[in-house]
Design a protein around this nucleic acid. Structure first.
Lengths: 130, 130
DNA sequence: GTACTCTATATGGGAAAAACATATAGGTGA
DNA sequence: TCACCTATATGTTTTTCCCATATAGAGTAC
């Protein structure tokens, strides 16, 4: 896993395994209209900071494929522009439902993470309120 | 992965891969004195909600072993009580440092998750403020 | 015109992680 | 004695991740 830059050693040692969250990132970006094809989505996903560190292109393309298999998105080829053809994706109703589900799952988890942060800061002596 | 109970179908479809976070959970619990050996920690970890769904015993024991290899915890056998011997763990200074690092990593990620929740709710039309 | 780079999609392969199963063993109660 | 709970540990299979590589259209430089 590519680790975040600008972190100390201990953070680096720890940065792994907060999981990818590529799927909700893609669903959100497709829903917001920020990008519609894999190559652009790659950049967007890596900018939004939802995923753990940098996601590679392969992960994006595979995730989009799986989402299409599951009916959460549909794709169409776009050969109008210059350069190689693009596969443009659109959210389906199922995809929007999936995104909604992600929100509630993530919200629940976020609460647990916040509690963890608060309790642990207290435990460690309230230093580093950052 | 054992999925959380009390979730609808879509949540179940989505519940995978918000990662485990077994390590920070263990470090926190050891730091707080809630439990000191694997079997109890198993129950505690699964109650605190930091990890994605249910963690199995194997994961706990292996995580504790690795933490000991890395010097974040130390263990001693306790044969005083009835029943099988317990391996009691204690946090080391390195373990406390590790926990501190986890806090800052998790806090950063929590912010991103919250942003995602807010933006996505807005995108989906502000329904389900839950 | 061919070498290089950027855009764009896709897949192969090895390594790591997670999930599930099983093994061992002390103790307790029916 | 059989079942069950506590307690630790490991084996095996499946899944996921990460890195590399393949293909290909288009633009630029030389």
């Amino acid at each position: 896993m590519r680790r975040g830059r600008g972190w100390g050693r201990m953070e680096q040692a720890v940065a792994t395994r907060l999981s990818r969250l590529v799927e909700p990132a893609l669903l959100y970006l497709l829903g917001s209209g920020a990008a519609a094809h894999g190559y652009d989505l790659l950049g967007e996903v890596n900018q939004m900071g939802l995923t753990d560190a940098q996601v590679d292109a392969g992960a994006i393309y595979r995730a989009l494929r799986q989402l299409e298999e599951e009916g959460a998105v549909v794709s169409t080829w776009d050969t109008s522009g210059p350069g190689p053809a693009r596969r443009n994706y659109e959210l389906t109703d199922l995809g929007r439902a999936r995104l909604t589900a992600w929100v509630s799952v993530i919200e629940r988890r976020t609460d647990a993470l916040q509690q963890f942060v608060e309790r642990t800061r207290k435990l460690l002596g309230d230093r580093n309120t950052d």
